[in-house]
Amino acid sequence: MLRQRSLCDGGSQSGLETLVRLFLIRQRIRVRSQVRVAGVGHVDLVVGDRLVLELDGEEFHTGLAFEEDRRRDFALVQQGYLVLRITYRMIMQDWQRVADGILALVRRDEHRWRASRVRPTPGR
């Protein structure tokens, strides 16, 4: 029971987040939910130090929501984060490709800060 309780995350905002987070935990990959990033707000998941996974639900993002998502992605990339925006359909219908892609990025250490990819100081 204690092990199961350690898998719970009250910050999770959706079932998609939970599915992806638990997959990463089973792979022994560090993941955090609903991480606050300056100038952006909360992001769904951060894998390691810098790989941001934004998991878009079944609803279709258009208009202002679409623009806001792109603004947030742009701000994250400016700060050195690597952003993957993954849809409900991708997770539910093409999970193996998504999982393989995330794992490939982790194997290449794309989820970590390195000297050549140091997180910029805010305001620069």
Rank of each mutant, 00 (worst) to 15 (best):
L53D: 10
A115Q: 09
A65L: 06
G101N: 13
M90V: 00
S12Y: 05
L64D: 02
G63I: 06
D100R: 14
G15Y: 07
V20D: 05
Q96E: 14
T62C: 01
I29C: 05
L55W: 06
G10R: 13
D56W: 04
E68C: 04
G48I: 02
Q93P: 05
L82V: 14
R28M: 09
I91R: 05
E110I: 01
Y88S: 09
H111I: 02
Q79K: 12
L55M: 05
I86F: 09
R89P: 00
Q96A: 10
S6G: 06
S116G: 13
R71L: 11
M1N: 15
L105N: 00
R30C: 02
L55H: 10
L53K: 04
L19K: 14
V37I: 15
I102W: 02
G41Y: 15
E58G: 02
H111G: 03
V118A: 09
R112K: 15
Q34R: 03
E68F: 10
D73E: 13
D49F: 03
V20L: 13
V40E: 08
R26F: 14
F74G: 10
R119S: 01
A104P: 00
S6K: 14
Q78G: 04
D56F: 09
H61F: 07
T87C: 05
D56L: 06
R50V: 00
G11F: 08
L45K: 13
L45H: 11
T87D: 03
E110P: 03
G101Y: 05
A38E: 15
L2K: 15
L24F: 11
L45A: 12
R21W: 11
L51T: 11
R30T: 14
T121A: 00
R112E: 09
Q96C: 03
L24A: 13
V40T: 08
L19T: 08
A38R: 09
R85H: 07
R89K: 10
V83C: 08
A99E: 14
